[in-house]
Simulated scan of single mutants.
Amino acid sequence: MTREYTEITVVGDDKTGLIARVTTLLFERDINIEDLDQAVRDGVFRMTMHVDTAEMTTEKEELREALHDLGDDLDMDIQVRFPADRETRTIAVLVTKESHCLEALFEAWADGKLGAEISVIVGNHDDLEPLADHYGVDFHDIGDEKGNPDEAELLDILAEYDTDLIVLARYMRILSPNVVFRYEDRIINIHPSLLPAFPGAEAYRQAREEGVRIAGVTAHYVTTDLDQGPIITQRAFNVPAGASVDEIERRGQPLEAEALLEAVQLHLDSAISVYHGRTELRDDVDAEGYQFGLPGAVDDLLADRPVDGLGSVVSRSEE
């Protein structure tokens, strides 16, 4: 899309008649639907619409109230985000016990390089609460004694802090569709492999067992399919012969923090868009300001021959 549209998200139990009720409300207010996408996962229905509100015959707050009332009537959660609402820069960071990614985010924030406010840290353990306290950021522990998170509490916290972007900084739990659907394309995760290789919780161990020579990390948007969301940035590193899982992890952790931080920056800069399951750099963005993958200097080290077709060129020159 080349212009800014208002985003409406509908989430709740799957039932008939939902789409008609919402679209009728919009039609009655001269709001044109430009794009509509829907999905059902584990009994949870999600519909995301991008609509043109430039010529609507109602006020913004009246539309919010009407959609809220319709949501109550349907027992659905209906949220509307106007273009101006998306200028909000509030980040909720979800963590477990590893600190390196959270430290990188805090350092960038403290140096004024993040361009957003880290408003809350949410953990399924309390190990990183002292780090949050050091930076004066609220910390909420939503896990039980085994670290199982209370997602209802998580959603309440995200709403309370008016969260614009969720960052999973080594949050070792899978978010349910009930959360993902509400924040689609606004949740960024860091995964310790070069996705789509080695999804899941034991990526470094899988890399060791498969004997890879080059491993890496991936920052990506979260979807309801585990570790299959649109890739944003990646980093790679060599795996020495005989390296242990711990050594591979030590090499990967600094790159996890680096790739995650760049992905967050790309999102906050509105430098990328998601299209057909992959991220694309926006046309008006200068790619030179970002790394995305390996440093550019690596290109000079790559072999440039042989290349298919050179043989026919040689044959013709000898005729």
Rank of each mutant, 00 (worst) to 15 (best):
Y171M: 03
P295M: 03
A263S: 11
L260N: 00
L74R: 06
R282G: 09
T9V: 12
I78D: 00
V11K: 00
D144H: 07
T58K: 06
R305V: 09
D75H: 11
D164V: 01
R251Q: 12
G252L: 11
D304H: 14
Q253D: 08
Q228N: 09
I190D: 04
V298A: 04
R170E: 04
E129P: 01
W109G: 10
E59Q: 15
G147T: 03
V93F: 00
D286S: 11
L194I: 15
N189Y: 01
E280D: 10
V22A: 02
T53S: 12
P196T: 11
Y221S: 02
V285P: 06
D164Y: 00
N148G: 07
E55F: 14
L175P: 07
M1P: 05
E59M: 15
R3H: 10
D300E: 15
V93T: 10
E55M: 13
G143R: 11
P230S: 10
E249W: 10
L268A: 09
T96F: 00
A259L: 06
R278Y: 07
E319Q: 13
F139A: 08
F27V: 07
T224W: 02
R251T: 10
R305M: 10
D72T: 11
S312N: 08
R173P: 07
T279P: 01
E61G: 03
D185P: 00
M47T: 01
D164N: 12
Y183G: 02
E117C: 03
A241V: 13
Q291C: 08
R278A: 12
T224C: 10
G293I: 12
A132P: 02
C101M: 08
L94H: 02
I231M: 05
G136A: 03
Y5Q: 08
P196H: 11
D185V: 01
R251W: 04
V212N: 08
T53L: 09
N189K: 02
I91Q: 00
A116C: 04
Y221F: 15
G309E: 03
E209G: 02
L165W: 03
V314W: 15
V95M: 02
I31S: 07
I232Q: 01
T58H: 05
V274E: 11
A271L: 04
A259S: 14
T24S: 12
T279M: 05
R278F: 07
A303D: 14
A169F: 02
D269R: 07
H50V: 05
A84R: 15
E28R: 15
A215T: 08
L70M: 13
E258R: 13
K146S: 14
A108R: 14
A66W: 01
D72I: 09
G242L: 10
F45G: 00
A259F: 05
A243P: 14
E262K: 09
R305S: 12
L260E: 00
Y204E: 09
E249C: 10
A84P: 04
L94P: 00
I91T: 00
H134L: 13
H125P: 05
A257M: 07
V95N: 01
V274Q: 10
